[in-house]
């Protein structure tokens, strides 16, 4: 299955990735190759096979409801691109 320019643009938008127009044909080509390679999977009959999401058949462990974390805002915000009054700042969000 060959991906078109608009397919690539759609996927890139969903993934919030800016791709230069000039690079789109190359991405389209690479992604098409990868998808055709992956396509081999469809030749196998997997009827009735239970999908495997984890390598180990274990179940979720539960944590006690006890506060273990302290305020580290200063440390965490020292590596933030833009903060003010303890808030992370982003361009205006329109609702």
């Amino acid at each position: 299955m060959a991906l078109s320019k608009s397919d690539v643009e759609k996927i890139a938008h969903l993934a919030r990735l800016e791709i230069n127009d000039a690079d789109i044909p190359l991405y389209a080509n690479n992604l098409t190759n990868i998808l055709s390679f992956v396509e081999q999977m469809s030749a196998v009959d997997t009827t009735g096979v239970e999908p495997m999401a984890h390598p180990l058949a274990a179940s979720q462990r539960l944590r006690p409801d006890i506060v273990t974390e302290t305020n580290q805002r200063e440390l965490f915000q020292s590596i933030a691109p833009q903060v003010e009054a303890g808030l992370y700042l982003v361009p205006k969000v329109i609702e």
């Binding site: 690539v8 996927i11 890139a12 993934a15 919030r16 990735l17 800016e18 791709i19 690079d23 991405y27 690479n30 992604l31 990868i34 998808l35 992956v38």
Partner: peptide
Amino acid sequence: RGEGFGPEVKRRIMI
């Protein structure tokens, strides 16, 4: 994201 990630990472994210 477009500038911060290199081409292979972008390819895999898109796949």
